[in-house]
Amino acid sequence: MSATAPVLDVRDLRVWYGSARGAVRAVDGVSLQIRAGEVLGLVGESGCGKSTLGRGVMGLLPDGSAVDGQVLFQDTDLLKVSDRQLRRMRGPDIALIFQEPMTRLNPLMRIEDHFSESITAHEPKLGKAEVRRRSLEALGGMGIPPTRFRNYPHEFSGGMRQRIMIALALVLRPKLVIADEPTTALDVLVEAQILSILADLKRNFDTALLLITHNLGIVAEACDRVAVMYAGRIAEEGDARTVFSQPAHPYTRELLRSVISLNTTGLHYIPGAPPSLIDPPAACKFHPRCPDAMRVCAQLAPVEQRLSAGQRVECWLHGPSDRIPEGGREPLEQGRIAVAEEA
């Protein structure tokens, strides 16, 4: 990890959606940084705002949403640039890899045309032979044989299509790649193939990667750092190994315990469901489900703390003590959560 300036610097990003029942605060004040050659994993349950965060960074939010804060990409604020400028940056600067490879390729276009369209849109002066050379190089890196360059998307399997999507995202050598659940629709062996491709990517091209996933195993496998999101905010962020071995936030700890892995001998789960983002609980949004909740957790929003182990965490368990009111450390009396209150 170099000490250079971050490729992506998100500062206090907020994203709201309008809905019939009120404003949905999908991202509610998130700050994070990614440096070149670094993989940041963004994890959380469904509905915690992780996909919205990825789209907010790319400027791909739907109509009826509002954004506030700063998204600095190499000192350019992506929230301030024009649509035209942003379109020019998508591809050579920032690329996005989606979850469903089946639906993201044009069924009427050959693979060759997908590549030439995307390359010539950004480098119109490039000759045909050079376009072909670059495309084949990117495809070869993903293990797609050159003999299939002129095939249509339906002639490929799901894993191959996802590799074509990745090749297409990488052919312009972007500095930042945002991958939103890139392996969720794939089988475990193909998933492992894609994960090793992503690992090579940062090693060979110094690409910065934001990997959005709900699978904690993938984060442990592929990420340098991890940010755990809950109800639109980052509960904990830090070195992936540190966060996974010594989780500081009760949510991270409970989430890790509820994963069913090959070492699971007993079932564990977090009671209750993630809160509504229209009308979230006051103060710490996790306090109604938190086994360690204190009185202060229902009174005041937690303050971001940096721990000696290196991670930053928003939880009153880690202070600051001088901000906790008298008697605030007493355990909170919680209402009983019904068994079926769940996501």
Binding site: L189, A220, A240, S261, L262, N263
Partner: peptide, 25 residues
């Protein structure tokens, strides 16, 4: 054997080996 080795595990001390079966079903 390959399936078992390919599962990403939340334990960071365990990593997926690279000699997994290529291709797809």
């Amino acid at each position: 054997q390959s399936l078992l080795r390919a599962i990403p595990d939340p334990d960071p001390s365990r990593t997926i080996p690279r000699d997994l079966p290529r291709g797809e079903v």
